[in-house]
Design a protein around this nucleic acid. Structure first.
Lengths: 241, 241
DNA sequence: CTACTGTTGATACGTTGTACACACGGCAAG
DNA sequence: CTTGCCGTGTGTACAACGTATCAACAGTAG
């Protein structure tokens, strides 16, 4: 009698690919993902509620539950949905491919700022489109004489740097968006009182000097690229590739 | 009449440092932070609710609101609280200091897995103890002939790599904890059906080869260090320091 | 003792995720 | 054509959450 009680329920991705037996339906995982991503793009992740999503799709609040096990599934679907736009060019060398991975991921996250607001478990879930990107990246590292562990360490190092850098960059942009500010200058002037208080404690002289003398505080693209250069240079140096 | 309406309310950190006028109180930001961090350490971030926190402190649900503006403030206090444990040794060279920053941050995040579950805006908030770490790291980069932008780019590159790598590592550990699994082997055996399905599609040959031939899949410390070496090598090479 | 000010308690409201039972509608078997 | 079934969407409901509001209290100054 207990033969089916812990059947782990068909995987989300398995269901995603099999066309539904009766093609005559208003809802589908794809439609749910697209609607959710559109709402999050326009209004941020906090606008994603199951009720809002349902109303966006023109159905009752509980209707999407026929296709997802819960809100977490919706978030995974959203991640997979937008990662469909990220494809790496073939035939490039490892360094160009890693660079394309980094810049492509940055583009993606800047287009969908809510990606950075997701819990790491949602963002890092192994969705088909994310797997495809990983496969492309790994295959560009193939044939260089690296063993499997070294190949993965290269991919992971680049991916970790990108994720961390964009975590920061997106957090700043989300802060701007939530307060309706327009750019880094406005951010700093709004945060000036707090910052001034911090600085007046006199505990952060080096940091203060940075604030006074730096000239590329708002050049986020340069910041991203310079860090990326460090990572790629280090890989080349360490592995001799 | 409107002279006070948008006074931005004394900063959280300003209040934190001034001892309360009447020292005779059961609550304080410090006590709130400590209690919240203890709960999150033991039961994960999802156990942190304002009601739970209040009951932990032996007060009514709304009592903590005298000291924090809302739950977000609690999360910031928690971050600052645990970062008090992270201090970098003085007098080391830039590379040793950056290494200490990376390994110290890793220790901290592995001791407090909930740090990785926070929204980036809470985790990256400029709390006093985080500022102190940044100041120490930047001052170790001083006097090497780098301009302010280059110094910050080094700090940020290391910090971004660390954040990204630990995002991943913590996500895995949180997954283990939530399901009561014990190690990477159990993780893989539990996820085997999904993974097998992915692999059976035949779309990920390189990834599959990694799974078959890699020998350090569970050596997370080695993975972290090898990526860190790339970053530090790249910095040394690019900036000639 | 009294009045005041800053701290804690009690109650309540709106929103969220989601469990559960029902209603509909197209297709297969008769 | 009728009948039964199963996959799909609906309606209602509940517990938990963050937090607004105001009443009750205590400790100090006068």
């Amino acid at each position: 009698m207990a033969t089916e009680e812990d059947k782990p329920r068909e995987s989300l991705w398995e269901r995603l690919e099999r066309p539904s037996p009766t093609p005559r339906q208003t809802l589908s995982p794809q439609r749910i993902a697209a609607a959710a991503a559109a709402v999050a793009d326009a209004e941020g992740l906090e606008a994603i509620t199951m009720r809002r999503l349902a109303s966006e799709l023109g159905v009752a609040p509980m209707a999407p539950y026929r296709y997802v096990a819960g809100k977490d599934d919706v978030l995974e679907l959203m991640v997979d949905h937008v990662y469909a736009d990220l494809r790496l060019p073939d035939g490039l060398g490892w360094r160009e491919t890693m660079r394309a991975l980094a810049l492509g991921t940055r583009d993606l996250m800047l287009r969908h700022l809510w990606l950075a607001q997701l819990s790491p478990q949602a963002r890092l879930s192994l969705t088909p489109n994310r797997m495809a990107v990983a496969e492309q990246a790994l295959s560009a590292l193939d044939g260089l004489g690296l063993d499997a562990d070294a190949m993965m360490s290269v991919f992971r190092a680049v991916d970790a740097y990108v994720a961390g850098a964009l975590n920061y960059e997106s957090a700043v942009l989300n802060l701007l968006r939530e307060h309706g500010w327009s750019d880094g200058g406005e951010l700093r002037s709004e945060l000036a009182p707090q910052m001034t208080w911090h600085m007046r404690t006199g505990r952060y002289p080096t940091f203060q000097r940075y604030l006074r003398t730096a000239t590329r505080k708002d050049d986020t693209r340069w910041q991203f690229e310079s860090g990326l250069t460090y990572v790629l240079d280090g890989i080349a140096a360490e592995l001799g590739i």
